[in-house]
Amino acid sequence: MAIKINHLSYVYLQKTPNEVQALHDISFEIPEGKITSIVGHTGSGKSTLIQTLNGLIAPTSGSIEISDFIVTSNLKKLKKIKELRKHVSIVFQFPEYQLFEETVEKDVAFGLRNYGYKDEDAIKKAHEALSKVGIDKSFYKRSPFELSGGEKRRVAIAGIIVLEPDVLILDEPTAGLDPQGSEVILNLIKEFNKQGKTIIIVTHDMNIVLNRSDHVVVLNEGKLAFSGTPSDLFAGDVSSYSIDIPALFSFALLLKEHGVGVDISKIKNVDDLAAQLKGLK
C-alpha cells in the first residue's frame, strides 16, 4: 500500500514567539515497493517530514496513511504506535554515532530485545541481518568502535533491518562516506528494495536521485514543490530549488535540443546514454 500524505502541516514551538512552520499543507503519495528520494534545501522540512512518517512527532494538522495506520495530530489515538515504528523504520543521519553496545551482535540485537525477543533468538536474527549487510562473522563479537566508518554504518543499518520493516527511511545514508563506501550502501538499499521494501531516501545527491530512484519529491520552504519521476524533475525548471542537475542529464538534454534522438526519460547512467548513442550511430 502506498503512503498517503494528506494536508500535512507541522509547526515547531506552536503558540510561542519562536514559532516556525516547517511543513505547509503538503499532500502527495509515496509509491509502494519503489525507491523515492526526498530532496530540498537545508531547512526545507525533509527531516520533519520523515519524523512524522513513523509517528516520532505528531502532525500539527493533516494526516498520514500507511496501510492500517493513520497518523494524526493526536498520537494517543494511534494505539499501535510501537507496531507502526516496526513497520516504518528510520536510519538517521550518521547512525554510527548511535552505536553503544559492547559487541557488534549485541548492538544489532538491541532493538529486538525491546520487542520482547529472547536473547538467543535476538542474536540469531542479528546474525542474519549482519550477513545481509555484508559484515563478516569475525566481527560479531568485536566492539563496534573498532570498525571503520563504512562498516559501522552497515552495522547501524543492520540494527534497523533486523526489525524487518516494510518501509525503510534513510536520512543521508551516504553522507561522509567515500565513493566506494557509498556504493556499498547504495547497493544494499537496492537489494532491500528488490526484496519488496519501500525505500525513502533523504538526500542532497542528485546522482542518487537520477541513478537510483523511481520517484522524487522536492520540498521547498516547507511546501511541496514537485512529486514525479527524476527525469521530469530535471527536464523542468528547477532554478528556484536547491538542485544541481546531474552533468549527465544536462548533457543528454543538450544533445536532444540539438536534434540527437535520445530518450532522456531512459537515461539513468552514462552506460544508458552510450547504449542509446550506439543505437543511433
Partner: peptide
Amino acid sequence: DESTSMLDPNGKS
C-alpha cells in the same frame, strides 16, 4: 576536512 559534505547543493556552492 570534508566540510561541505553535509551541506545541500546551494550551501555547498
